[in-house]
Design a protein around this nucleic acid. Sequence first.
DNA 1: ATATTAAGTGACACGATGTCATAAGTCAAT
DNA 2: ATTGACTTATGACATCGTGTCACTTAATAT
Lengths: 209, 209
Amino acid sequence: MPTSTFFNLNDLKRAKLLQAAEKEFARAPLSQASIANIVKLAGISRGSFYQYFDGKEDAFYYLLKLHTDKRRAYFLKLLQEKDGDLMASMDQVFRTMLIELSEEEHLQFLKNAVLNVTHEIEDSFTELFLGKQSEIDAVNQVKNLVDLKKINIVNKQEFFHVMQILTSVTFRNLVDQLSRNLSHEEAIENFRIEMDLLSKGLSKANKQV
Amino acid sequence: MPTSTFFNLNDLKRAKLLQAAEKEFARAPLSQASIANIVKLAGISRGSFYQYFDGKEDAFYYLLKLHTDKRRAYFLKLLQEKDGDLMASMDQVFRTMLIELSEEEHLQFLKNAVLNVTHEIEDSFTELFLGKQSEIDAVNQVKNLVDLKKINIVNKQEFFHVMQILTSVTFRNLVDQLSRNLSHEEAIENFRIEMDLLSKGLSKANKQV
DNA sequence: ATATTAAGTGACACGATGTCATAAGTCAAT
DNA sequence: ATTGACTTATGACATCGTGTCACTTAATAT
């Protein structure tokens, strides 16, 4: 996390710095982004940067958090609008992100993040849907919004795993679209097939229930 | 891929170099591994390294490929032994990798890889189960070994997606175990829950079939 | 023997990182 | 207004890593 000094900055300077960082992380993936470029863009000295952040990773993950926080709010809103229909909400989030990632130029930052997935980044996306695992209420917040009657689970633990599964599969579909340059139609069709499979189950045995 | 010069090397020298690279990639994740250390360990000059590989990434992904090729062979063998039971084979692979990743010291290399997942690395793991997507026969090779009667699919395309789903979920369970330092029992229990959910389906609607 | 091609070398230019001594700014108390 | 304590800002610097290249050595063909 950024230091307190960073949060003490006046809004203008802080915004300018974040914008500079985002621009640099949009230009190049984390490993190739350089602090020199960020400070040049932000018009601050190298030393200052290190007073705000531990290093470029620190800045990167903070930016990523800002992005996913925004999308988490959107996901929760969707759940409400769609009367707790989890699959429909995931579907909508996937479609929205597809569009965002292709259209909004400044989201090149997110593209770079998604294509260069450390487990920390995948965690960020898990949090998008599930909230921070350390905050017990966050999972409940989602669970309370979801219409559990439509979901094939017997307890809260299983709900957690349902979300984990949906997140992994959704996330991988996003990565696929980006890395293989699929068209939106293809990406949505692939996603739909997998969500159907997830819904109805992979094994035939369950039909005997 | 390594250059032809690399493959012309005599077995001893090539092995020594690969061993050195693996040792360095076990010491530190890709981004922090250094060519200087590799060439020191291998007893070759810096210039030579660049005659064999494009850079450290090249060496890294080649090593990763050697590892996943080995495991792919194991997966195919399992499918045969278990009469095409896909879920049982995935389960066995997961358990085996858990043990390998905790016991074999030299697999620290794989740990570093798994925890630092670029989409290329996730692709490598997808190939583990599915073969190279460019080689059409590879998917068929798996499909022919799998007992399709147990799987809830209607065509080959769906089979492909089933494998994609299973790979993502299995892989994320591996990452989880490593990054959260779960015990084997916990990891296996989590994995079992998710595989059960995948088997029976996430939505209740399907019970009406 | 000589020429040609392949393999091996390490010094070097370049760029990036993280630190640190020092300077500049802020502000409350006197 | 001055002091002093504290916070913020700076950029030069030491260190390290990368990729290249002119050159040497080895191998092979003629």
